[in-house]
Design a protein around this nucleic acid. Structure first.
Length: 656
RNA sequence: GCACCCGUAGCUCAGGUGGAUAGAGCAUUUGCCUUCUAAGCAAAGGGUCACAGGUUCGAGUCCUGUCGGGUGCACCA
């Protein structure tokens, strides 16, 4: 049995495919320079049909005009000139003006097998900061929050797999109106004391209790007055309401961390708004903004008495009315103002820092820290000061993100402004069918729509833990019926792994710009393009490997000629080619910031293997050489798919 | 009113830097378990890539406009 547990290594291995791709485009480029004296970028692409070979170069089309020759002629000359010049290339062919490349299949497979031609990539010293999750600590997390956290967490894993140093932050707004509303509900409606709330907060699903309370109080007329009083207490940091605010926020943050941990999501540090206030981060930022004249004091109009940022800073054709208030006429700072200060801190530009204490140690041993306001009891750790910052925030907040970036620019930090990336994504909405299933009453207007937006205020949404529970329950039924012989403990573990996989894949398979119309039945399915389908392929591959007492020494028993002969079979060759594309796909997915690309790749790999599994009976193969190739491919597949799944935050179960 | 996103099969969605016959899953119909696990495999039907112009040897992809749908434009976060 091979070890399938290797975590991504510090340096990444580049595939043979990658290297070959580069040596081909370099050779073509050189040839064009010496023989035609032209300098054009040589791009490669994957042919639509496998019968055209492994790689296609449309370079002849680009040159047709410049050289005043027909594309077919150019391509033919290139094919003739380059023939036999590149190691690993069996032949060049010309079709429809394309220069198509056929790999030497035996060479290619042997390179993968022996690990020749692999190169290491340098490990980055610069730090990238990714901020995600950021749920208001006043109610249970819902599936919209899950999209954020899973997207962020997966992107972090992808960058780490590429060798990037990443710090994961989860910002906690523990002093805002959302928390205040729940505190007001406890105090004014439920008539609870801080001690009583602290007692309630001990129950595991305190976040559910607050979910209901919040939607109740948010719709009450009196809430405005209560909110003001509560906010005042929270901001001053004194009084029973303030104490209750801390109790509520801390308990709910704990609930959120538990929910996220169920999905394998962890954080390095939780910077909190309360510390931003108490350590007066804003004061520094305010001085900087005034010095640089990034904001001005408004003497007239609707914003009279406020410090505002001119609309022209973040918007084209902006008028006076587009100005954004940074400091209110009563002297308090807005959310955007605080966010500019926070963003400066992330880049190490604020000249101030938090103190930290341990919040929890995760089962894998890593520690999650939380900000504190005092030096006493603080740990000697350092966070922030990144060279690029990704803020995973839904697209509805792009306007505010633009203002923050404009603030950085106005302060004289154009580089940091460029490195401030709003990793935006569209929201998760519910299908009307799902609303009906959940017993949510719809207005006449909502019934006609294709999707219904979730709302914490209205208590309208699918809670994260509820969905995870349902998925586990469903997986458990399947696992129990298939593997009655296994222990209860082991079956539960497998069911959980399947549930997590199902959920993560479901939220990852959509591209970021697509609004997810959440359909409960679709999300609960384990067939077709789902996470469990992909896991199943990995499990089947491992089953084959497990049944072999000792795997042969593939390097010894599989010379190039044997590989070449067996890989003449087209579908085997295509599968091997697909398996070897992982690093290229990962690189492109990180570059475009699209985890969905990696998820889709995992699915395609699984599809390819499922077909292979059906068409070839590896263990029954009579021809020993052929059997060894099939076994090797199975092992190679299992490794590469497991690596892909790990990067997606998905585990491969022992059995399914 | 202004800004951003979306419009591809009945439904839900993929389609890097323009390239060859536009792809998956679901649903529908039909085959395949005495087999390394059927959470699987195979086959069929299903398309004016919203519409109209433009750029190009070549456009689902780039540009402009129109029409639909979503979101944002607070002294809330």
């Amino acid at each position: 049995m091979i070890s399938l547990n290797d975590q991504y290594s510090v340096a990444i291995l580049k595939t043979v495919f990658h290297s070959l791709e580069r040596s081909i485009s370099r050779a073509v480029s050189n040839y064009l320079q010496t023989n035609y004296a032209v300098d054009v970028p040589v791009t490669t692409e994957q042919p639509k049909q496998s019968s055209f070979g492994e790689m296609a170069l449309p370079v002849a089309f680009q040159l047709a005009k410049q050289l005043k020759k027909a594309p077919v002629m150019i391509a033919k000359e290139l094919a003739a000139g380059l023939s036999g010049q590149i190691e690993g290339v069996a032949a060049f062919e010309v079709a429809n003006g394309y220069l198509n490349v056929r790999f030497d299949r035996g060479w290619f497979a042997r390179e993968i097998l022996t690990g020749n031609g692999f190169e290491t990539q340098e490990f980055s010293i610069r730090k990238t900061i990714v901020e995600h999750t950021n749920i208001n600590p006043n109610k249970a997390a819902h599936i919209g929050h899950l999209r954020n956290a899973i997207l962020g967490d997966t992107f972090v894993r992808m960058m780490k797999a590429m060798g990037t140093r990443v710090e994961t932050q989860n910002y906690i707004d523990n002093t805002g109106v959302q928390v205040a509303d729940v505190v007001a509900a406890f105090h004014f409606v439920e008539k609870k004391t801080a001690a009583e709330v602290a007692e309630l907060a001990k129950q595991p699903r305190f976040d559910y209790l607050c979910w209901d309370l919040y939607s109740k109080v948010a719709q009450m007329e009196e809430v405005k007055g209560w909110r003001t009083e509560t906010l005042h207490s929270i901001e001053s940091g004194e009084g029973a309401l303030s104490e209750m605010g801390h109790v509520v926020a801390d308990a709910i943050v704990d609930c959120h961390l538990n929910t996220m941990l169920r999905l394998g999501i962890q954080y390095d540090v939780l910077p909190r708004e309360s510390e931003i206030l108490h350590l007066k981060f804003w004061a520094n930022c305010f001085e900087l903004l005034k010095e640089q004249k990034a904001i001005y004091f408004e003497n007239e109009g609707k914003n009279k008495g406020c410090w505002v940022m001119p609309g022209s800073a973040f918007r084209e054709n902006a008028g006076e009315e587009d100005s954004k208030v940074i400091v209110r006429s009563n002297g308090t700072v807005t959310y955007v103002g605080k966010d500019i200060a926070y963003q400066l801190w992330k880049f190490g530009l604020l000249g101030k820092d938090f103190y930290y204490r341990k919040l929890r140690t995760y089962p894998n041993g890593s520690v999650c820290y939380v900000s504190t306001a005092t030096r006493e009891g603080a740990e000697r750790v350092q966070f922030g000061g990144g060279t690029s910052v990704y803020n995973v925030i839904d697209s509805r907040q792009s306007y505010l993100q633009d203002v923050v970036v404009a603030g950085l620019k106005a302060l004289g930090y154009p580089n940091q402004a460029d490195k401030s990336i709003h990793f935006s994504y569209e929201m998760v909405a519910l299908t009307p069918r799902t609303c009906v299933e959940l017993g949510i009453e719809l207005s006449e207007e909502d019934k006609t729509k294709t999707t219904v937006e979730m709302s914490g205020r209205k208590g309208l949404g699918v809670k994260a833990d509820d969905l995870i529970d349902q998925l586990i329950e469903r997986a458990q039924v399947e696992v129990d019926s298939r593997h009655a012989d296994k222990s209860k403990e082991s079956r539960t573990k497998v069911a959980e792994q399947i549930a997590v996989c199902s959920l993560r894949y479901f939220l990852l398979k959509f591209t970021r710009t697509s609004v997810i119309a959440f359909d409960l039945q679709e999300a609960l399915s384990f067939e077709g393009e789902t996470g469990p389908y992909v896991q199943y392929a990995a499990v089947r591959a491992n089953n084959i490997l497990r049944k072999v007492a000792t795997l042969p020494d593939f390097k010894a028993v599989l010379p190039e000629e044997v590989l070449r002969t067996v890989l003449e079979t087209e579908d085997l060759w295509q599968l091997l080619l697909d398996i070897s594309r992982l690093e290229s796909v990962l690189e492109a997915a990180v570059k475009s910031g699209e985890p969905a690309a990696l998820a889709k790749y995992a699915f395609q790999l699984a599809q390819g293997f499922s077909k292979f599994y059906h068409d070839y009976r590896v263990l029954d193969e009579a021809d020993e050489a052929r059997r060894n190739v099939l076994l090797w491919m199975t092992m190679h597949f299992a490794k590469q798919l497991e690596k892909t799944l790990n990067t997606l935050g998905i585990a491969v179960p022992e059995y399914m």
